[in-house]
Amino acid sequence: MTFKAYSPEWAQAYKDEINRSAVYKQAAAGWEGSVGLVVLAEPDKNVPEDLGIFMDLWHGEARDVRITSRDEAEKADFVISGPYSRWKQVSKKELDATKGIMLGQLKLRGDFPTIVRYTKASQEMTECTTRVPVEWPDE
């Protein structure tokens, strides 16, 4: 079953995938804080407006993952933003999110020492997106 990218059903599947991951559970065991992912619009790729994904993450568990407005996602403790096509690359394993941040292709806002401490957890979090079958708006 495939899910429309960034639909509520996709968000639920992503949350389930995170909660199925033993790697994430262990790597994020001490994690406390929300993460907002901001997908910047690319109208030529059928993404006409910015959107957000708000993730309530707590001690290795995804308590909530929901599609929100960009503004709502930016209220999270940690915010990663980038254009739609970059996020699609991340989901297709064509771009490692950490490398994307280091290259300036994705922007991170929040406490960097915490992010560095939880590199493995954030890598697994993005790895989980690659396991959710997606129907992309520009394909």
Binding site: I101, M102, L103, G104, Q105, L108, D111, F112, P113, V116
Partner: peptide
């Protein structure tokens, strides 16, 4: 500044601050 420079600078500043 490059992404790497921004990341290194932010990490350093936040670490020193705390």
């Amino acid at each position: 500044a490059s992404g790497l420079a921004s990341m290194v600078a932010t990490l350093l500043a936040q670490n020193v601050e705390r």
